[in-house]
Computed example of a mutant assay.
Amino acid sequence: MSFRDAAGPIHMTASATSFTIGATLTRADIPVLCADLAELVRGRSGGGVVVCDVADVVRPDVVTVEALARLRLTARRHGWNLTVTGACPDLLELVRLLGLTDVLIQAGRQPEQREEAGGVEEVVDGRDPPR
């Protein structure tokens, strides 16, 4: 399956490219997807953002996450960023369980402030060296 078969419409501007991942992916699809993405962004000056819409993914699995991670690496190698949008709760949970939440950022999602929970204070041991 080629990138064009697995994906929906591809929209390109000077600084952005968007495409849709199909409902199912196999591990064999990943190298073809990456090669096709590399072909799309190779030589386009200035880099930009590749927006990967995964709203059609029905049953996300480890292969889906692997594909997204490899697509992100491919984009980065060519000076582009990859942003995932349209992820269902199951895919978001799987990404979280695999420890890739900070890597596969969902478009439009704001980073959370690292605040302590209300009523929780850090305990400092007087024997610890100052920071």
Rank of each mutant, 00 (worst) to 15 (best):
R44Y: 10
G99H: 07
V49T: 12
F19Y: 15
D102H: 08
V103S: 04
V58L: 13
L33C: 00
T74F: 02
V54A: 02
A16N: 07
D53E: 15
C34N: 03
L40C: 04
T20M: 12
L97G: 13
I10P: 03
G22F: 03
A38P: 05
I10W: 06
T24V: 10
V63A: 05
L73C: 15
A107V: 11
L98D: 04
D56C: 14
L40E: 07
C88Q: 14
G86W: 01
T17M: 14
T13W: 09
R59N: 11
H11T: 15
A69N: 04
R76F: 11
L37A: 04
C88M: 12
L73D: 15
A14K: 11
D29I: 07
G22Y: 05
G46T: 13
E39K: 09
S15W: 08
V103N: 02
G8Q: 10
P31N: 10
R96S: 13
R44H: 15
P31F: 08
R42K: 08
G8Y: 10
T17K: 09
P111G: 00
G108T: 06
S45G: 15
R109L: 08
L40P: 03
V58I: 13
R27P: 08
D36G: 13
V62F: 08
V51Y: 05
Q110C: 10
C34I: 01
G79N: 07
L73T: 14
D61E: 00
A23T: 06
A55V: 15
D53S: 15
L92E: 15
V57N: 01
D61G: 02
G99Q: 10
D102W: 05
V95N: 02
G43I: 05
L73K: 15
V57Y: 02
R70F: 13
V84L: 11
N81T: 04
R96D: 12
C88A: 15
R44E: 13
L100H: 10
L25W: 00
C52V: 09
T74D: 08
